[in-house]
Amino acid sequence: MYQAIVIGTSFGGLEALKTILPALKEDFPLPIIICLHIGEHNNEVFIRHLSEICKLPVKEAEGNEPILPGVVYFAPPNYHLQVEADLSFSLSTDKKLNFSRPSIDILFETAAWAYKDKVVGIILTGANSDGAHGLKTIKEFGGKTIIQNPCHAASPVMPRFALKIAKPEVRLHLEEIANYLNKLTT
């Protein structure tokens, strides 16, 4: 019933993703679209690393690329990643939002417009407020909203902002998230 998972995270995010992504089942039926703040650094090294430890293919999202089920996509560094109505990606070099490019808010808002109530938004550990308004938009469109429990996050700031602004439906420990998603999509 859901059509996509979107994840936003910054400080401590790579470690958190290393817990979640490898634990997703081999036949995971949805695309997983991730906005990770990593400054202007190259994605290549950790995408290669994640590819090695995940059952699902992991790649950087490209402009005009059709979004496929069972693929993990990362926003390219220094570009905003957007979901179009025909369920393909587009990129933008527009100014930073919440001091961030890629911005989680932009990914989440465009995902809500494209997938309506068929998207699951997740905010993980992070040290700024990006993503809170995007998560709120997902909730307003009827999608499912999840945050990592701020008390146990490497940095609680991002999930705490999301909690305050979006009032998400579900709060989970990091270790519970993969299992939750596996069950949600069965």
């Binding site: 905003h80 957007q82 979901v83 179009e84 109505a85 587009s90 933008s92 527009d94 932009i106 808002e109 465009t110 417009w113 494209a114």
Partner: peptide, 8 residues
């Protein structure tokens, strides 16, 4: 033009 950006 791609719609997501222009709509924003």
């Amino acid at each position: 033009y791609s719609k997501a950006h222009i709509r924003r």
